[in-house]
Simulated scan of single mutants.
Amino acid sequence: MIKVFVSGYWKSNLGDDLFLKILCEKYPNVKFYVFLDRKNSRQFQRVANLTIIYNNLLFRLINKLLRKIGLLQVQDVLAPMLTDCFLEIGGSIFMQDDNWEYRLKQRAYARERYSQYFIIGSNFGPFYSQDYIEKYGDLFNKLNGISFRDSYSYNLFKVKNITRASDVIFGLRTNSYQFEYKKKQAVISVIDTSKKKTDTGSNFQDSYERKIIDIVDELTYKGYKVILMSFCDFEGDTTVVNRIYYHLNNNENVEIFEYIDDIDTAIRIISESEKVIASRFHAAVLGLMLGCQVLPIAYSGKMKNLIDDIYKEKKWMSIEEFINNGNLNDSNFVHLMRDEIEFIVSDSENQFMFFDNFIRSRNK
Rank of each mutant, 00 (worst) to 15 (best):
N332F: 02
Q293P: 00
I319R: 12
K315Y: 00
A284L: 01
E320K: 15
K314I: 05
E321W: 13
L290D: 08
M289P: 02
L328Q: 04
L286Q: 05
A284P: 11
L286N: 11
Y311D: 06
K312H: 14
E313G: 03
N325E: 13
A284I: 01
F322N: 13
S318E: 08
K302W: 04
G291L: 08
Q293I: 01
N305V: 03
E321K: 14
D330P: 02
A298E: 03
N325K: 15
I323P: 09
Q293N: 12
N305C: 11
S300T: 03
A298S: 14
M289F: 09
L290N: 05
Y299I: 04
L286A: 02
G326N: 10
L290Y: 12
L288T: 11
K302S: 05
Y311G: 08
W316H: 13
D309K: 04
N305S: 15
P296D: 13
L295K: 05
M317G: 08
D309N: 14
W316C: 11
S318Q: 10
Y311K: 11
P296Q: 11
V294C: 02
E320D: 15
N324M: 15
C292Y: 05
M289W: 02
Y299D: 02
K315T: 02
M289T: 07
E320H: 15
G326Y: 07
N329Y: 09
A284W: 00
N332E: 09
D308A: 13
N327A: 14
L306S: 09
N329G: 13
M289Y: 02
I319G: 09
M317Q: 15
E320Y: 15
K314A: 07
I319M: 11
S331N: 07
I297R: 09
C292G: 03
K315D: 00
F322M: 13
E313P: 04
S300Y: 03
G287D: 01
A284S: 13
E313L: 10
N324A: 14
I307C: 00
K312Q: 14
I319E: 12
L328R: 03
Q293G: 01
S331A: 09
Y311C: 08
I297G: 08
C292I: 03
E320Q: 15
S300W: 04
Y311R: 11
A298I: 03
N327L: 11
N305Y: 15
L290F: 12
S300I: 02
D330W: 00
Q293A: 05
V294G: 01
E321T: 09
N324D: 12
I297F: 11
L290Q: 07
K315C: 03
G291N: 09
G301T: 07
S331I: 06
L286V: 07
N305A: 12
G291E: 06
Y311L: 07
Y299N: 04
G291M: 06
D308E: 14
C292M: 06
Y299A: 05
E320R: 14
P296F: 09
N325F: 14
V285L: 00
D330G: 04
I310W: 06
G326R: 09
M303Y: 00
L288Y: 04
G301C: 10
L306V: 09
C292E: 03
M289D: 01
L306T: 05
Y299G: 06
L295E: 04
I323G: 06
V285A: 00
L290P: 04
D309Y: 03
G291V: 03
L306Q: 07
F322L: 10
L286K: 10
L295P: 01
K302Q: 08
N325V: 06
G326F: 07
